[in-house]
């Protein structure tokens, strides 16, 4: 067990390092720099700014400085939002995105698991078919389409919900719905197929032979084992929500990390690109590693090598 954890964590660290290195060299391939777009600055001033932030040094040297600084916990100053450190910006924007993603995860689980159970319980009947059709459609609709359609119907036509920001409870409804549709549909399908799989096992037949009611068998015996695939999906789901939120944050004008990431790339704000990429990648990788380890802890049948 210990060996497995060490191996997974090591692999995760290696991935973060690969992402950081790739990002660093890729973003430096983009022509133009953070100060080129500002016409008000003279050429001399631009050069002075570049040397102040160390941008005039050779790329390998900058790479090693960045990595050593990062390991000391210093992510540097933002090149475009003068006077603010990258970690400062990230920590002020992160709670917004995390809150949104967290609520969406909760909603997806609360919708997906019961629907999946219901569908498996009524297998082959009308209810099952209906849920399957819904879930299949939910998987096919990209998040930007559902957000825009929501925005159009509830925001501007019916005028029921606010279309910008996250200032009230009501404002959360549309972004969370847009984010949660895909994972809810996915969990429904996952839950249904895994539950049907478990229902064919011998111990379920034993439980039924004891005379337990079908409902009780499903919730007491089957659900516990069937929920495992859903647990493993939580990691990728978080990753999907983080990236899905780029779009949703853009459409609903939410000041979150995703928007910051996209705009930092268009602005060539090198330190911000590095900071947001590493933080987002770390979050996703950590979620995946934790889920992988949890999975093996929950299910003793999976042998650890």
């Amino acid at each position: 067990m210990g060996k497995y954890i060490v191996k997974r964590v090591g692999m995760g660290l290696l991935s973060i390092f690969v992402v950081a290195t790739l990002t660093f060299f890729l973003m430096n391939m983009v022509p133009g720099g953070p100060f080129v777009a500002e016409k008000s600055i003279s050429k001399a001033a631009q050069e002075a700014l570049a040397s102040k932030y160390g941008l005039d040094k050779p790329i390998m040297e900058r790479y090693f400085t960045y990595i050593t600084d990062f390991l000391k916990g210093d992510m540097g100053y933002s090149l475009r939002q003068r006077g603010r450190t990258v970690s400062d910006i990230i920590f002020s924007k992160f709670p917004v995105s995390a809150g949104l993603a967290g609520i969406a995860v909760a909603v997806a689980l609360c919708v997906g698991i019961p629907l999946g159970c219901l569908s498996a319980y009524h297998r082959g009947k009308f209810g099952d078919r209906f849920i399957i059709v819904l879930a299949t459609c939910g998987i096919a609709i990209p998040s930007f389409i559902s957000s825009v359609v929501l925005l159009y119907t509830f925001g501007s036509k019916l005028n029921l919900l606010p279309t910008i920001g996250l200032n009230s409870f009501k404002a959360y409804i549309m972004p969370v719905t847009a984010l949660a549709i895909y994972p809810s549909a996915y969990i429904t399908r996952l839950m249904r197929s895994s539950l049907l799989d478990v229902m064919g096992q011998d111990y379920i037949r034993t439980a039924k032979a004891k005379g337990l009611a079908g409902f009780r068998v499903m919730f007491k015996h089957a659900l516990r084992n069937a929920i495992l695939p859903v647990v493993t999906y939580v990691g990728p789901m978080l990753a999907g929500l983080m990236t899905g939120s780029f779009i949703v944050e853009k459409i609903f004008t939410i000041p979150g990390l995703g928007r910051e990431f996209v705009s930092s790339i268009t602005n060539r704000d090198y330190t911000m690109i590095m900071g947001t990429t590493i933080i987002l990648a770390t979050l996703i990788i950590v979620a995946n590693v934790v889920v992988d380890i949890l999975y093996k802890v929950i299910d003793p049948r999976i042998n650890l090598k």
Binding site: M11, T23, V30, N288
Partner: peptide, 18 residues
């Protein structure tokens, strides 16, 4: 395994841009 753990959309956006 390493490529699998790299968050794809992040890399896609950076790559497409660069």
């Amino acid at each position: 395994d390493i490529i699998y753990t790299i968050p794809d959309i992040l890399l896609i956006i950076i790559m497409a841009m660069s």
